[in-house]
Write a protein that binds this DNA or RNA. Structure first.
Length: 465
RNA sequence: GGUGCUAUAGCCAAGUGGUAAGGCAAAGGUCUGCAACACCUCCACCCCCGGUUCAAAUCCGGGUAGCACCUCCA
């Protein structure tokens, strides 16, 4: 498995700390609102990374946090007139609603800041003891100058950063680059007791503390969106490595942005679209398809036209899946022919190719291309005279591959209203009597209801659109 | 100013030295009562200019255009 490691800015062969095992920490959402399509990308990417590692035989431990103590949540709670905890709780639930619809599996652990205060405070204490942090008036800051590797992930020197920094005025800090580990509470804010003051953690320390607690001092993979490289992940490294004196994460994996009209989508620019909004117009599986059709590090533009195209592509996968299920129900159980046996044995090439695609830095775009080659092969080889075993082999491979991507997950619909069944029967009767006007009338009527009819050699079929 | 990224068909998008995957859309065909699905066919001077090489979309140099980070942000 090769992964692009932001730390060294190149693809590297993945070597796990423990053979056969991989642990992954992905930065999760700050739960103060519905998440948007830009947030969704890393959730989907790391979900696929995890599924693929499992597919090729790794035992995966996957941790994704919820940031539930934060300025944005506090602001929101003031706006809504309820407690920060209630705001966080609400949006954690909403996260799962959207994530489920996107086919994102639950992490093994979804830790929250509020539930890990002892670990966060302990980590800050270690940093203070080691001289990497200092206290001023109940606030604790990280002393960036004490960590000589600072800037190694983002490829910048402390001097460069100092030079370009748009710094906030803060007399308490020794250097503008220093960042808060602990903030003394202000009026109306939630707080926890600590050796320094009643207050709350800064916005980088949680990930260091929770990664350490659940996965250990050194982990295999740490990931998130590209915009987290600096300062978030840079600061995490300073905290974690400053505290333990060892490497924090062996591989740093970052996904590219979603753009709107070529510009970054972000909450601050206000040009974002929430997944919840999109779900009103599209099945969210289409969004997943759309994301995976590009490599995770490429920036991708988002608009309705592209989403519609992704929907058509996904539909093609469903069509072949349903066709195989149909054949399995209707074909008799005879022995496969010699040609069929050869064809089945060659299916293994698709699997091999698919694995090679994803092993190359999780190239899902290539993986999907391979699946479409398989789709064409299936469509041109399987029919009502195929042997059941042959169809089963193709079906099993197809679902195996789409499962890795978390696509084609909806079950085939098999039930229709009696009224619609009756209409379909009436239409068949009309067609038999060459009353095509009536037949087309019924077909149009059903289309208007979202039921598309197809007259095939194997009989009439329907699907919902 | 510092640090990175991107530029491939109408649209999207893989491909990192051997002569352009895949999807969407359009066109022609087979199938169909007509459609739809499916299948077949068709669709690329790989941003520009130099260079290295038997061979470059792919490597090197120089341009041009766009984007991002350095500030909360996936």
């Amino acid at each position: 498995m090769k992964l692009y490691n932001t730390m060294h800015q190149r693809k590297e062969e993945f070597v796990p700390i423990q053979p056969g095992k991989v642990n992954i920490y992905a930065c999760g959402p700050t739960v103060y609102d519905f998440f948007h399509i830009g947030n969704a990308r890393p959730f989907i990417v790391f979900d696929v990374l995890r599924r693929f590692f499992e597919y090729i035989g790794y035992e995966v431990t996957f941790v994704q946090n919820f940031t539930d103590v934060d300025d944005k949540i506090i602001n929101r709670s003031h706006e809504e007139g309820r407690s920060p905890q209630e705001v966080a709780e609400t949006y954690i639930e909403e996260y799962f609603t959207d994530a489920d619809a996107l086919g994102i599996r639950r992490a093994d652990v979804h830790p929250r800041d509020s539930e890990n205060m002892p670990e966060i405070i302990e980590l800050i204490s270690i940093l203070v003891d080691k001289g990497h942090a200092y206290q001023v008036n109940g606030n604790v800051y990280y002393r960036v100058a004490s960590f000589e590797d600072y800037g190694k992930l983002s490829g910048q020197s402390i001097d460069d950063l100092n030079c370009g920094a748009r710094i906030d005025v803060n007399d308490e800090k020794e250097s503008p680059l220093d960042f808060a580990l602990w903030k003394r509470k202000k009026e109306g804010e939630p707080y926890w007791d600590s050796p320094w003051s009643p207050g709350r953690p800064g916005w980088h320390i949680e990930c260091s503390a929770m990664s350490r607690k659940y996965l250990g001092d050194t982990i295999d993979i740490h990931g998130g969106g590209k915009d987290l490289v600096f300062p978030h992940h840079e600061n995490e490294i300073a905290q974690s490595e400053g505290a333990c004196g060892c490497t924090f994460a062996n591989y740093w994996v970052h996904n590219g942005y979603i753009q709107i009209d070529g510009a970054k989508m972000s909450k601050s620019l206000g040009n974002f679209k929430t997944i919840r909004d999109i779900s009103k117009h599209y099945d969210l599986e289409v969004v997943r398809m759309f994301m995976l059709m590009a490599h995770y590090r490429s920036p991708i533009d988002f608009n309705d036209k592209l989403l519609t195209a992704a929907g058509s592509a996904l539909e093609r996968m469903y069509t072949v899946r349903d066709q195989m299920l149909f054949l399995l129900d209707n074909v008799d159980d005879h022995e496969p022919s010699e040609e069929e046996k050869i064809w089945v044995s060659e299916l293994a090439n698709y699997k091999e190719q698919f694995i090679a695609d994803l092993k190359d830095d999780l190239n899902t775009a290539d993986g999907i291309a391979t699946i479409f080659e398989l789709v064409r092969d299936i469509n041109s080889h399987l029919n009502e005279s195929s042997a059941k075993k042959t169809i089963e082999a193709a079906y099993s491979l197809f679902t195996e591959l789409t499962d890795v991507l978390g696509l084609v997950v909806k079950e085939r619909e098999t039930n229709l209203d009696d009224a619609i069944e009756a209409l379909i029967a009436e239409r068949q009767e009309a067609r038999k009597n060459k009353d095509f006007a009536r037949a087309d009338e019924i077909r149009d009527q059903l289309t208007a209801q979202g039921i598309v009819l197809e007259d095939t050699r194997e009989g009439v079929k329907w699907k919902r659109v």
